[in-house]
Amino acid sequence: MILLIEQVLNGLQYGAMLFMLASGLTLIFGIMGVINLTHGSLYMVGAYCAASAVLQSGSFLVGIAAALAGAGLYAVVIELAVVQWLYRRDHLYQVLATLGLILFTNEAVSLIFGRRPPLMDIPPFLQGSVTVLPGLDYPLMRLAFIGVGGLVAVGLWLLVNHTRLGMLVRAGADDREMVSALGVDIRRLYTLVFGLGGLLCGLAGVMAAPLLAVEIGMGERVLITTFVVIVIGGVGSIRGALVGALLVGMVDGLGRAYLPQGLQMLLPPSVADTLSAGLVSASIYVLMAIVLLVRPLGLLPARS
């Protein structure tokens, strides 16, 4: 029971991080129709900016500001310099250009921040753990991560469904030409959405930096999983990104804990160990395959 709850919390925390990345990616992919492989790099930029700012200032709040500013600004620069010229192009051009940007960003980050991975401590006010249940102490930093994920979900829901900006963004997703005929410069709207995606990446970066290794290539690893999340949830849908992120987080968390145990009961230990190691890392892809078999557009597609 303790293990179950702990793994559920781990799943929630992983899901919260995936949601911060996937919500931006799904907006960019679903609304602007751009496959943006640099999304993971924005997360890395956020983490590096945070780690470096905390190292120099000693303040976690400065770290948050640096991560948001760094990733948000870098996103806007990328959009203006590269991505905005590719909206009408085939996806292949977008993949090639943004893949190039990954390589560029990796090199740029190691030039600016150095090759040695920076370390970032958990800020003092988030250190230690909380007794969630008798016998289960859970790290405060991870709980905070879950809380921030929840806030982001509520904030995005309000932004998309109850603001002028959200209305224009949703209209732009439905009908680019009409919005442009109404006198709204859709290019500026897209830049704004891209920047918003960058901010969310930065937020994920600063929250993840004390928990994970801040290093070159951290973005690519999480990028694939993020794409799995938006495919499961349905491209273009923030609600879908939330559901997908939680599902993937849970499957990953619970799979790690229970798959090896389950297989050991069925199979000889040597076979069970190899098989479970493989199955754990494959589990989210199996989940994606099952979801796509039942609902080819994902669980909650933006438009049915």
């Binding site: 209305m167 209209a171 439905d174």
Partner: peptide, 25 residues
Amino acid sequence: RTFQITQLCPDFTAIENVLLSIEAR
């Protein structure tokens, strides 16, 4: 302008489509 092939936001209600136009102005 209006378009040869109707350009409206399918998920929006009629009044929301008009609101969008007012907001844009």
